[in-house]
Amino acid sequence: MIILQNAVTVFLILGGTVFMLIGSIGINRLPDFYTRAHASGKVDTLGILMFVGGLAVYEGISIDAAKLLLIVVFVAITSPVSSHQLARRAMLLGLKPWYGRDRDHQKSR
């Protein structure tokens, strides 16, 4: 039982770390604001959810695990809403999305 618990913990924490790494690379490498908001909004949220969920599994059935699960619920609600609002504000204020490298070359020519 403890082996199973540890295995699930290791799987969830490693998965969360991988997703957070992908999200960080995405924020650095993607070309414009909207794609970066997409990277931080989806991938980082999933990474944090898996990481904290893994900690809750490691804790077992206790009050601390319940608090960690509450953190999971809170992050799952708030993080997508915040990135949604950032992207929505940028769109309303008229920020143009990135149309691809070819169009950039045509415009500069």
Partner: peptide, 15 residues
């Protein structure tokens, strides 16, 4: 005027 932000903020502020 965003329904998502409105509902989330009103739902999460008491907590």
């Amino acid at each position: 005027d965003s329904l998502i932000v409105h509902a989330t903020a009103r739902g999460i502020a008491p907590f």
